[in-house]
Amino acid sequence: MAKILMKGNEAIAEAAIRAGCEAYFGYPITPQTEILEYMSRQMVELGRTFLQAESELAAINMVYGAACAGSRVMTSTSSQGFSLMQEGISYIVCSEVPAVVINVMRGGPGLGNIQPSQGDYFQMTKGGGHGDYHVIVLAPATLQEAIDLTILAFDLADKYRSVVTIIADGMIGQIMEPVELPEIEPPQRPDQPWALTGAKGRERNIITSLYLGGPNLEEVNLRLQKTLDEIKANEVRYAEHMLEGAEIVVVAYGTAGRIAQTAVKEAREEGIPAGLFRPITMFPFPYARLDEVAKSVEHLLVFELSAGQMLEDVRLATRDRLPIHFYGKMGGVVPSPAEVLTEIEKIASP
C-alpha cells in the first residue's frame, strides 16, 4: 500500500470515513477544525450526514440522536469543547448507544491557548461528567496510529455500546507525515434491536437515561460497571520500547510518548539503560503490565504535557514501590527530546 502525506486532523477524518462513519456533527475549535472541514466536503460528497452545529452542546446531542437511530456517528472537538460535551457523553453512556468522540487537546484551563497539551487526561479517563462511568480512551502517538485507533474506536463503540474517545493533541492534529490508509470492507456491525427506527412490526423502543424509583438505577449502574470490567479485561493496549535491561523507564503517552521515544534512544546511545512504556489505552490504563515492568527497573520517569495527571495512575499501578520522577510541561509548552533526555540524565547521574 502506498504511503501518502497527510495532516493529522485530515487523517483522522479520512479514517473515520473509511471505518464507515455515517454521520458527523461538530463545531469549529482550534486545533481540530480540519476534521470538521474535511468532513464537510467528504461526507457530503459521499451522501452521508454532515452538520455544523451551533455549539458543542448541540453537536454531542445530535450525535446522541443519531446514535439512538443506530447510525455510526462521531464528533470531534478540542479541550474546551470537550468540557461542554461532558453532559451529553454521560447521557450517551447511560443510554448504552455507541458513539466516537475525538479530542484534539489544547492548552487550558479556561480559554487557555491553542498549543498542544495533555491537560484533559483527568476529564477524559476519570469519567468527566456526572455519575459513575468511564469511556474508552485511545492515545495515538503517530498519525498512523491515529488512523488505526480511529478505526478501532468505531468497532469498540459498537462492541460495548458506549462512547469511545481519541485523546489526541494539537501536535497530532496539526503535523503532517506519511501514512497508509487501509481499504476497509463495509463494517460488520452488531444487530441493533434497540435502535429508534420506528415501531414497525415490533414493540416500541425507548432510549432513556432516567431511572426513577427503587433499585432501577443501581441495576443500570451495575450493568455499566460489568461492561467496564469487560473493557478492562479485554482492551488494555500499550507499547514498549527498549525495555530490555532498562533501569530507567519513561512512562509517557501520545505526543509526549513520541518525544520520549527519541529521548530514550538518545539516552541509550549515551550508554544510559533507558526504556519507554507508552500506554495506548489511557482507559483502561495498563496498570498490571506497568506494575510488571516496574518490578525489574530502578526508576520511573513520568513525562506529560500536563501537571501530573497520568502520574496518579502510574503511582496507583506501582504503589510507589520505586522512585517515580516527574517531568511535566503545561500551558501548551512542548519540550524537545533533549529536555527529556536531560531529565533522564539527571536520574542516571544524580
Binding site: 452542546l57 448541540a58 437511530a69 425507548i206
Partner: peptide, 22 residues
C-alpha cells in the same frame, strides 16, 4: 411509539441527529 429522552433543553439537537440519519 419509539421514543428517546433528551438532556434538559437538548431535544431539538437530539431530534436533529435522529432525523438527519433517517
Amino acid at each position: 411509539l419509539d421514543f428517546a429522552e433528551a438532556a434538559h433543553g437538548r431535544a431539538p439537537a437530539m431530534a436533529t441527529g435522529l432525523k438527519r440519519v433517517q
